[in-house]
Design a protein around this nucleic acid. Structure first.
Lengths: 183, 183
DNA sequence: GAATACATGTAAAATGTTACATGATTTT
DNA sequence: AAAATCATGTAACATTTTACATGTATTC
């Protein structure tokens, strides 16, 4: 799946593995992420499959950049994936839920500590979506004529916001439940 | 992480790999899942580490069952994991969002088809949490004295419900957005 | 002087998925 | 007669993470 993310970005612009990591961190990290090493290996694999081509750009006093460019085959491959509708719900993995599911034997205070810690983290994440991420997208929207793109990126940001609001609501409900056990 | 899920179940009862797969499918599938083959290999690995022991139960006219039992070391290992709070937010992967992010060049009708298809799937999932899953848990709660366990399982179910409500709300917002492009 | 950013990558390990294999019994 | 369930597992593959390796330039 990462390969489609990389092709998706390379369809807008040519970039190095390093650039692509930066791009993902500021844009898709809400719903897709990858480590630097996986990006490099996946790019190499994509080049072997003819989906991208690369050339080395020498730099003074910095390591050389290997810049990747999408090919026509790569564009067709991306397009095919985008056209084909997703017929399933992707199964989630939520470690916090797994822990909670088996935590009945724990001290209620220990459970509450964990839930409150997560609440802080999710609150910070929510605020990030509402401020920093929001600003990045609205600045982009104002500076280009890619109106449709910007609106879809805003929709993706909005997902992060709704998700965090939902998570915090669930944490508050669950914290209240466990607090009730102490009495 | 799967190993903790398996230890978590085996802490309640002894079970075969097959049993554990059934248990996960009806209880944790909302936030954790695994394939049969991975469960078998992980159980074997756990036995090698002394976390579980197994014995073969012969059956007539069915293949023998290999039943696993948690050891004291396994209980300690599980306990250690449960005690230690989760300090990060687990990064999500949502294929639908990734596709949408790169879909601006698509025909709006194609985007709408995909979003509406997903809406149907999420609606069905939501109803499952609100009826079938709900019933399983309330029956369990009524038939045992594990009140705390049942309440945490209900909290996990509730997460699934809230998640699907949120997802449907986001889909409705996004469908409305793309519908607006056609005019 | 230490840490971070820039920029690349390899190797090994862990995790997860798909396909294959077996064979009796029960349901459609 | 075909398909599904019960029950086990192996092998191959794909994906992802962690650790290692290098070296300059800038910022704290």
């Amino acid at each position: 799946m990462l390969k489609y993310a990389l092709l998706g970005f390379l369809n807008y612009l040519s970039a190095s593995g390093y650039d692509l990591k930066q791009l993902m961190d500021v844009s898709t990290s809400n719903f897709w992420h990858a480590k630097q090493s996986q990006i490099y290996t996946t790019l190499k694999k994509l080049e072997g499959e003819g989906m991208v081509v690369s050339h080395v750009e020498p730099q003074e006093s910095r390591p050389n950049r290997r810049v990747y460019q999408i090919t026509e085959a790569g564009q067709a491959h991306l397009r095919e994936w985008l056209d084909q509708p997703l017929m399933v719900i992707e199964p989630r993995k939520e470690t916090l839920l797994l822990k909670l599911f088996f935590s009945a034997q724990l001290d209620p205070q220990a459970i509450l500590t964990q839930l409150r810690l997560q609440r802080n983290l999710h609150q910070a994440d929510l605020e990030k979506y509402q401020t920093a991420t929001r600003d990045v997208i609205s600045q982009f929207a104002a500076s280009t004529d890619m109106a449709d793109d910007a609106q879809l990126w805003e929709a993706a940001r909005r997902f992060g916001e709704l998700y965090e609001e939902m998570f915090i609501r669930w944490l508050d409900e669950t914290i209240a439940l466990v607090e009730g056990w102490e009495a």
